[in-house]
Design a protein around this nucleic acid. Structure first.
Length: 547
RNA sequence: GGCCUUGUGGUCAAGCGGUUAAGACGGCGCCCUCUCACGGCGCAAUCCCGGGUUCGAUUCCCGGCAAGGUCACCA
């Protein structure tokens, strides 16, 4: 069979000689040890935690080694394309501090572009044409129906499904038959003529998993679809080579197609990049665990964290603790160091699937929020409220000076002793609502209405806004004692039956009357911030009403 | 089902021939204390199973089992 003639018929016209592409995309001038890594999402617009997970690893490896991180868009399937997706991806990743050196919509050096696979059709076809001319790829005229019939038959016979060996009908089509099909205008795809044998097992060194066994590929996979666009497998091989990628860190769901990729690199005559297959993020679902799913798990979406107001650094710290087993220990020792100071290592990446633990993230978030200065906290809350907050939430961040006081005095911003009451901006802003809005009447009091009113009116009689904390609390104790409550906790604990309760119960009544809740920071401080008028109004208001 | 990967407390995990089997989150208890939060102290909880190899296996080998991934003209 004249393969050259066939190649010309299938992909007519002049294509650049392949050596020309080698010249256009030369090896990068980078110091030894520098890694070139990439992120290659498809433009569905849905960028998720799994993407971020692997993105952080790629980013750290590239930049720590003095290499490059680029963004390539795998848009070979129109069905997946969503308008504005690339911008959304870029923004989402930037929010979490992933910086690209090159790539789609990034600017900078475009030597290795274009970065959209749709714009690289000529390149792929040049390589496909060469493969056909070498007899290593062939046209396949099988219809979808024929293929699904084949699959059913194979399933029924308990054979391995797919297009391979004797099942690859079009693999050995006669020259005459091929041209007749072509003349008849039958649609076709181009398939790889695989030379692999599944009996051959090869050892492969995965950067994360270590030594693994790979079964040689024998599938005649589609490399060029009927619309003349390559499949992912083929496009990524050409691109990773031409873009001079040195290391591919990707999700372990790709491990199964590694044999195909290896054969592709070999048949194209490209040196292989190194691969590391990263474990996936799992979720407990009843008895079993499964991959985080787009439909069922809102926490998979990156927007979930932005909307809730997680600090981007907190999410990143959590990802890093999952990514490198020694990160957490390092971070405990260097809580304020830039994350870039941590020496990230591919060898420390986990081999096994990881259950996503929201509790852990929340703990990290509380700690991260507690590190912010009053001003940083204010800026974070403010910008979050502008983008995601309700009217009420935006109103609470409107008065900078007032909010700064609330934050500094009650949340401990700026002091050594920080409170860790919340993990997100949304919680923080709601948490301090009582500084802005008079709480609703509540029946949370654990004393009778008569007692409640007796406590409140007794307090009101002695209350003086100018009192300092000690004087103020001494007065609360007096109120307690006058109504049969223990003024000292020690005395109360020694003989609880001798009292109606303790000063703690009295303080609780005041606390609920002023803030609407039984759990708040220091009450005296709260009263100072609210001011005499508010305090009196709230206490008076709490005395009216409902019995 | 075939192929591949992975199995250390509830979760993330260190350890990889001899250890009281780290640490963190979560849980529980105590202390501090006007509540909560912080902080401090403490407790419970783990080497998937079965065979080898070895004086000795969580660690090495084999076999099970379980879980996950994947088997498209999707990426």
């Amino acid at each position: 069979m004249d393969y050259k003639k066939l190649a010309e018929r299938l992909l007519p016209g002049e294509y650049l000689p392949l050596e020309e592409y080698e010249r256009m995309y030369p090896p990068r001038a980078l110091p030894t040890g520098a890694e070139v890594t990439r992120l290659a999402p498809s433009p569905t617009g849905f960028i998720h935690l799994g993407n971020l997970f692997v993105a952080i690893a790629n980013e750290r490896i590239a930049h720590q080694s003095g290499g490059k991180l680029y963004l390539r868009i795998e848009d070979t399937d129109l069905k997946r394309k969503v308008d504005g997706a690339v911008e959304a991806v870029k923004r989402a990743l930037e929010y979490f501090d992933i910086r690209f050196d090159e790539g789609a919509e990034i600017g900078g050096d475009d030597t290795y572009g274009p970065w959209y696979q749709r714009q690289r059709g000529e390149i792929y076809r040049a390589y496909v044409k060469d493969l056909i001319a070498r007899g290593r790829a062939y046209p396949c005229f099988c219809t979808e129906e024929e293929l699904s019939e084949l699959r059913e038959q194979q399933t029924a016979e308990k054979k391995i499904t797919g297009y391979y060996g004797a099942y690859a009908k079009c693999r050995n089509l006669s020259e005459e038959k091929i041209y007749r099909n072509l003349d008849a205008g039958k649609p076709y795809v181009i398939r790889l003529r695989s030379m692999g044998d599944p009996e051959h097992k090869l050892r492969f060194r995965d950067e994360i998993k270590g030594e693994i066994t790979v079964t040689e590929n024998d599938q005649d996979v589609v490399i060029l679809k009927s619309d003349g666009i390559p499949t992912y497998h083929f496009a990524h091989a050409v691109d990773d080579h031409l873009m001079r990628t040195t290391l591919v860190i990707r999700g372990e769901e790709w491990l199964a197609s590694l044999p195909i990729h290896l054969e592709l690199f070999d048949v194209l005559g490209f040196p292989r990049p190194r691969y590391g297959h990263n474990c996936s993020l799992m979720k407990q679902d009843g008895e079993t665990r499964r991959k985080l799913s787009k439909r069922k798990d809102p926490e998979l979406s990156l927007e979930f964290y932005r909307k809730a107001g997680y600090l981007p650094r907190a999410v990143k710290v959590y990802m890093l603790t999952l990514l490198n087993s020694n990160f957490e220990e390092w971070y405990l020792k260097h809580p304020d160091a830039p994350l870039e100071d941590f020496s990230f290592s591919v060898r420390k990446m986990s081999k096994s699937g990881t259950l996503f633990d929201l509790d852990k993230l929340n703990d990290i978030s509380r700690n991260e929020l507690a590190k912010l200065s009053a001003e940083e906290m204010y800026d974070f809350l403010f910008s979050w409220a502008q983008e995601w907050g309700s009217d009420a939430q935006r109103a609470r961040v409107a008065n900078r000076e007032y909010l700064l006081r609330v934050l500094a005095l009650c949340m401990g911003t700026g002091s050594k002793k920080r409170r860790k009451d919340f993990e997100t901006a949304a919680q923080a802003i709601d948490h301090i609502a009582y500084f802005f809005e008079t709480p609703e009447q509540t029946d949370a009091y654990r004393v009778t209405a008569e007692m409640k009113n007796a406590i409140l009116s007794a307090f009101l009689q002695t209350y003086c806004a100018a009192d300092d904390a000690q004087v103020w609390f001494a007065k609360v104790k007096e109120v307690a004692a006058s109504l049969g409550f223990a003024a000292e906790m020690k005395e109360y604990r020694a003989a609880p039956e001798a009292y109606a309760g303790s000063v703690a119960d009295v303080a609780e009544v005041l606390r609920i009357a002023v803030t609407g809740g039984a759990n708040t920071p220091d009450l005296w401080t709260i009263m100072q911030i609210l001011g005499e008028e508010q305090v009196k109004a709230r206490i008076t208001g709490a005395m009216e009403d409902r019995s």
